[in-house]
Simulated assay, not measured.
Amino acid sequence: MAELGPFRVNPDGKTLSRNRHAWNNVANVIFLESPAGVGFSYSNASVESGDSGTAVDAYLFLLNWLERFPEYKGRDFYIAGESYSGHYVPQLATVIVALAEFGLTDMNLKGIFVGNPYLDDYMNTKGSYEFLWNHGVISDEVWGNISEHCSFGRVEGTACGQAKKSFKIGDIDRYNIYAPVCIESPDGSLHSSSYLPGYDPCIGAYIDAYFNSPKVQKAMHVRTNTKCNLHWTDAPVSMVPTLAWLVDNGLRVWLYSGDMDDVCPITATRYSVKDLNLAITKPWRPWYTPDSEVGGYAQQYEGGFTFASVRGAGHMVPSFQPKRSLVLFYSFMKGVLPPAVSVWSP
């Protein structure tokens, strides 16, 4: 409701408007609340959650969904996500690809598409501080102190902890360090701290109001007493080996990063891409939208692995750059890099 879906919630928290750049313009899209317990989803059993269990649960959901809607069996199928889906999506893909190798599933998985992915515990931390330094949020001295005392590994000393706490970033949105923030006035009304075309930082409040409406909940047939109380039991430190295995097994793997995000920043993703140790087949270059804007930059590697940036976007790329995200998603679906030339010439 704030990103790639067909509707956006209006400021009244009661009505909807169309999203002209929804991804279902170019594909049938299933939205899955995962793991069980988030959103309105629930589990009939009280179980511990983790990466491996979430992948199995998602696979079982897909099996049941395809039994319910058999007309979609055999169609090309893709998995997309963002943020911690840097774990969820590759792990679900691994389950499907592994079963397919033994002829145990007929799901026609073609590729995965993950935005601003959380891929590596240590590199995400290093990349975040480096990103803040590169964008002038922390000083040369602070970054130098962090670089000197932090190894960005499993064990860090006291000096590293002190270095990380030696600065303040102020009231900015770390999901997009250049975006306005939502301000609540004394009378309880909400407004944006400044203007960013097409983006309203208060949309989260509108969405909460909409989904907390009894009328909406009744129409969606949801349980209203669900609670999210997750106890996470397993997660690999790095997803690089999983991504490498998927590429080796011929799956289309695309990662992309909004270049204004500090939570899972492009600097962190670059470290993980480098760790894949894949040969470059198409060097880093700009890509364009149909209206001749530079949408971002892209590079392709052996096995078809692709890494792209989306210019001017934060963590939730479709929220900040809906048109550019749709262009990139369409290119992924077609299996070709987005346009390398502008149709406009000076």
Rank of each mutant, 00 (worst) to 15 (best):
G5K: 09
G103W: 01
G250Y: 04
Q299A: 09
G103Q: 03
T94R: 09
C264M: 04
V47E: 11
G144D: 14
L66Q: 03
T224M: 09
R311D: 08
W245V: 11
Q91R: 15
P70L: 07
I183Q: 08
G295M: 13
R75P: 01
P186E: 10
S238H: 04
T226M: 10
Y206M: 02
T269E: 12
N225T: 12
R68A: 15
W245T: 15
Y59H: 07
W143G: 07
G111Q: 12
P11M: 04
A209F: 00
S331L: 11
F77M: 10
G153T: 15
R8S: 02
C150W: 13
M239V: 02
Y72T: 01
L255F: 15
S342M: 13
A313H: 06
S189L: 07
N19S: 07
K282A: 10
V253S: 02
D234G: 02
G188N: 10
F113C: 02
I183A: 02
T125P: 01
G304I: 11
G258R: 05
F31K: 00
L119F: 01
V89I: 14
Q300I: 00
G5I: 02
Y122D: 08
V137N: 10
A308G: 02
L196I: 10
P346S: 08
Y330E: 14
S193F: 14
I266G: 05
L326D: 12
V56M: 12
Y256R: 02
F131T: 04
G296V: 05
Y256A: 00
E101M: 13
L16N: 04
N212I: 00
W232D: 02
V341N: 15
E71H: 07
P186A: 12
G50P: 01
E293R: 03
S185A: 13
K73D: 08
P11D: 08
F329Y: 14
I30Q: 06
K282L: 09
S345F: 12
K227L: 14
F61N: 07
S52R: 15
V263C: 13
N44P: 01
P241C: 06
A45Y: 09
Q321V: 04
D76L: 06
V222Y: 00
V29W: 12
T269F: 09
M316K: 11
K110H: 03
V336W: 07
V97A: 02
E302P: 03
L243Q: 04
G81F: 01
G53W: 15
P90C: 12
T226L: 07
N24V: 03
H87D: 00
K73Q: 14
Y175I: 05
P283H: 12
W133M: 01
D120M: 08
S128F: 04
H231L: 12
V327R: 06
W344H: 14
S185R: 11
I183Y: 06
Y42N: 12
K334F: 03
G335P: 00
P283W: 14
G295A: 11
G39V: 05
V253L: 04
D12F: 05
S272R: 04
L16T: 03
A163G: 07
A159K: 15
V29H: 13
K274G: 07
